[in-house]
């Protein structure tokens, strides 16, 4: 809890969104950001980058957000990794479903680039303490 949010991994298949999000998180939020274009890349980057938080796009080809979340939970470094979903489907029941899967939060697309870093920080601060 005392630890500040620094390293954020962002997984999205759309290159432009990756770039915009990177600028928003780095320049507005001051985070260290690792961009991944797909789930496999994210799993591979887990050990070298050791993210504190992962932001996953909901809809991706091959491995979508929920599937990637399942794979992350199987990795030693991903078991307790807080995950926030970015989704274009922000209907109440879908948000519920993602929270039930273990998501820390859900941010709707299109997001506000000036506010997203603060939102992630707020979610990070409010994350439940993990039994370690």
């Amino acid at each position: 809890m005392s630890e500040a949010l620094r390293r954020v991994m962002l997984v999205d298949d759309d290159e432009d969104i990756r770039r915009v999000a990177q600028l928003a998180l780095e320049m507005v939020g001051g985070f260290e950001v690792r961009l991944c274009a797909c789930g496999a890349e994210a799993l591979a980057a887990l050990a070298p980058f050791r993210p504190q938080l992962a932001v996953l796009d909901f809809m991706m080809p091959e491995m979508d957000g929920p599937a990637l979340l399942g794979r992350l939970r199987g990795e030693p470094l991903g078991t307790d990794l807080p995950v926030v979903f970015l989704t274009a489907r922000a209907q109440a029941d879908e948000v519920e479903r993602l929270r039930a899967l273990g998501a820390l939060g859900v941010i709707a697309k299109p997001f506000d680039p000036m506010a997203i870093a603060a939102e992630l920080k707020a979610l990070w601060e409010a994350r439940p303490a993990r039994g370690a």
Binding site: D14, D16, I17, V20, A21, L23, A24, M27, V28, A88, K109, P110, F111, D112, P113, M114
Partner: peptide, 12 residues
Amino acid sequence: TPLTSIRGSLGL
């Protein structure tokens, strides 16, 4: 998806 990029770029 494109709106996210446009809105994000403009917002920044």
